[in-house]
Amino acid sequence: MARSVWKGPFVDGYLLGKADAARASGRNEIIKIWSRRSTILPQFVGLTFGVYNGHKFLPVQVTENMVGHKFGEFSPTRTFTGHAADKKAKRG
């Protein structure tokens, strides 16, 4: 069953304060979080979070398309890196 709309999206409260502080500082810093369950809110757009996957903190650069998803979706706990071959990475 889906979450009731009247509750609003779930987010651990302390993330909001940290996000505000990071935005106010204006520095390019990574906010390390363990809260994989928190929903990505519009006020997180543009910030970079390091989301713990049980092993390491993977950087998650929040964009508008990610709003409504959970942080944990972008930091998989089981990974297969595969082969490089002709794969490319774009510098953001």
Binding site: Y14, A22, E29, I31, W34, T48
Partner: peptide, 9 residues
């Protein structure tokens, strides 16, 4: 490396 801050309950 960018500076890191921790957000924990």
């Amino acid at each position: 490396p960018p500076p890191e801050i921790e957000a924990r309950a």
